[in-house]
Deep mutational scan, measured.
Amino acid sequence: HNGKLCKLKGIAPLQLGKCNITGWLLGNPECDSLLPARSWSYIVETPNSENGACYPGDLIDYEELREQLSSVSSLERFEIFPKESSWPNHTFNGVTVSCSHRGKSSFYRNLLWLTKKGDSYPKLTNSYVNNKGKEVLVLWGVHHPSSSDEQQSLYSNGNAYVSVASSNYNRRFTPEIAARPKVRDQHGRMNYYWTLLEPGDTIIFEATGNLIAPWYAFALSRGFESGIITSNASMHECNTKCQTPQGAINSNLPFQNIHPVTIGECPKYVRSTKLRMVTGLRNIPSIQYRGLFGAIAGFIEGGWTGMIDGWYGYHHQNEQGSGYAADQKSTQNAINGITNKVNSVIEKMNTQFTAVGKEFNNLEKRMENLNKKVDDGFLDIWTYNAELLVLLENERTLDFHDLNVKNLYEKVKSQLKNNAKEIGNGCFEFYHKCDNECMESVRNGTYDYPKYSEESKLNREKIDGVKLESMGVYQILAIYSTVASSLVLLVSLGAISFWMCSNGSLQCRICI
């Protein structure tokens, strides 16, 4: 991952900044910058967002509201009850120091605090018919004063009620008058409520006091790749198909172990950190130390980045220098085999997901714990399936590479015959000098055995068991695999060879 928040398929997220979902939807004055928000790819909250409900109280069923919003990608904020005409018999300019803005008392931008007009609070009834052709999110509140005197001074009615009804919602609220500790300079409380109004449905408000009335509502448009994440990451000019709280993932790998919460087309989250597919040879310690064997393909974004291909070729060293050249036929066979294998694994496992966190309130801790156990169970199954699949494929890959290298080895052996000696570690020792032209003939299969047989015969008789390297004779190393990324691999195959001279070296080696 890149540690950044990015656009998702070209669409920017909605960053709530210092506000949370509650503050944004109710219209906390400190969240005025969010009022123009219309569309987004996903919503970003920060872990310690401080601006929620400015007048103390709870947004009821907040967790369910977050779940609903996680599939919303755009909205239209509109005046559901026009301020100047909807409440002619009531005062609608209630403000509070708890919702101060720029040093002055204020109130929510989407709600109206209705109080008595003169000395009376006549029963009010108002309704709205949803003609938007889509779901409408309606929010309101109920004020709970701290004393009967406060109730009387604001609403005149000691036994007030609030009723809200639609086809799918029907509740009646009565204020709970009680002494409470002071929070944000208030002994009173406000509880906030919401409902989704279906197209064509009607919502009716009736009250004799204590109503925090809707002013603006939201017509919602769903987008199934949307979601809500909690993150401290910063926004950058970048684009992605998959976003996590820790950063964007741009990967076609089937798995990731970065974060379980994802938005967009994302690899499946697994616990494993070692889900690797081999593309090189079986481990040979001396070669492995030099980083030549054991190439791997990573299938977990965050564990290993991208696929690494092994390729086969020849390396030689003689009086004229040293050089490398790919054996294109065996390399292409290996590439085709690995590509098919990788595609097979991805096809089997690479279903892209959006995974969002589930919200539970403080009273639902047991449910949250149960949900976590269920999620953990599914996660263990996914991890096991992934590891088992790759384990089985790896064994076949190792066998496949062994065969490829063996074929190259036999190709060289059949040409050199007794003009060189096998020394048991995949290397041959020449009994004759071999210049670049000679080396090329070994690589392309045109090695002239009779041409060098007499010199080889004489050297075999002279050496008589002495280690060949100390006599200045020449080696050919018969097994060799270097490691390159897919891009470098293609470039390498396009070149005939490249040279690395070893000044004054008397050794001649050709490596497979």
Rank of each mutant, 00 (worst) to 15 (best):
S231P: 01
M235W: 03
T240W: 03
G247P: 08
A248H: 03
F255N: 01
F255W: 11
P260Q: 00
I263A: 01
C266G: 04
K268L: 13
R271I: 01
T273C: 03
V278F: 03
V278T: 02
T279F: 03
R282K: 13
N283A: 00
I284Y: 10
S286Q: 15
I300R: 05
I300T: 10
G302K: 09
G302R: 11
G303D: 14
W304P: 04
G306C: 06
G306E: 13
M307W: 05
I308V: 14
D309V: 02
D309Q: 10
G310I: 05
G310A: 04
Y312H: 06
Y314W: 01
H315N: 01
Q317G: 00
E319R: 01
A325H: 07
A326H: 02
Q328W: 12
T331K: 03
N333I: 14
A334H: 06
G337A: 12
S344F: 04
V345G: 04
E347Y: 02
K348S: 09
M349G: 01
M349E: 00
N350H: 11
N350Q: 14
T351D: 00
Q352L: 00
Q352T: 06
F353N: 14
N361T: 14
E368Q: 15
K372L: 09
V374Q: 05
V374S: 07
G377C: 05
F378E: 09
F378W: 07
I381K: 06
T383D: 09
T383H: 11
E387G: 03
L389K: 01
L389C: 03
V390N: 07
L391Q: 07
N394Y: 06
E395R: 11
E395I: 02
H401S: 01
V405W: 05
N418K: 08
N419F: 03
N419G: 08
K421L: 13
E422T: 08
N425C: 07
G426S: 03
F428Q: 06
F430G: 09
C438L: 08
E440C: 07
Y447L: 13
Y452K: 09
S456N: 00
K457V: 14
N459Q: 14
E461H: 04
K462H: 07
G465R: 12
L468E: 01
V473F: 11
L477G: 00
Y480L: 12
Y480I: 04
S485F: 02
S486M: 07
L487H: 00
V491E: 01
A495M: 02
I496L: 15
I496H: 15
M500L: 07
C501Q: 07
G504K: 10
I512R: 02
